[in-house]
Amino acid sequence: MARKAFHVADIAKILTHWYPGRSVREIVNSLGVARDTVARYVAAGAA
């Protein structure tokens, strides 16, 4: 499967959902992004 290009706006959406306390699973279901992708950006945001 090919990689999907991510833009800063997409990463901002993930972090906007994560910051108030939504789980990775909730973000995946809401935005339709792969779980690994969400987990990667959430880990970077937490660091």
Rank of each mutant, 00 (worst) to 15 (best):
M1F: 11
M1L: 12
M1I: 10
A2W: 08
A2C: 09
A2Y: 15
R3D: 09
R3S: 15
K4M: 11
K4R: 13
A5G: 14
F6R: 01
F6L: 14
F6S: 01
F6T: 03
H7E: 09
H7R: 11
H7G: 08
H7I: 10
V8K: 08
V8C: 04
A9R: 10
A9E: 11
A9P: 04
D10G: 02
D10E: 15
D10Y: 05
D10K: 05
I11W: 02
I11P: 00
I11E: 01
A12F: 02
A12D: 13
A12P: 05
A12G: 07
A12Y: 09
K13E: 13
K13W: 09
I14F: 00
I14G: 01
L15C: 00
L15V: 01
L15N: 01
T16G: 15
T16L: 12
T16D: 15
H17I: 01
H17F: 05
H17V: 03
W18N: 04
W18D: 02
Y19D: 11
Y19N: 09
P20H: 01
G21K: 00
G21R: 00
R22F: 04
R22C: 03
S23I: 03
V24I: 15
V24Q: 12
V24G: 06
V24R: 10
V24N: 14
V24T: 14
E26K: 04
I27A: 02
V28K: 15
N29F: 11
N29K: 14
N29D: 14
N29M: 09
S30E: 12
S30R: 06
S30I: 07
S30T: 12
L31F: 03
L31H: 02
A34P: 12
A34L: 12
A34E: 13
R35Y: 15
R35D: 12
R35C: 07
R35H: 15
D36V: 12
D36E: 13
T37L: 12
T37I: 10
T37R: 09
T37F: 14
T37H: 09
A39G: 05
A39P: 04
R40W: 11
R40S: 13
Y41C: 06
Y41R: 07
Y41Q: 08
V42K: 05
V42D: 01
V42A: 03
A43T: 04
A43M: 05
A43L: 07
A44E: 06
G45A: 01
G45F: 02
A46E: 09
A46S: 06
A47F: 04
A47W: 04
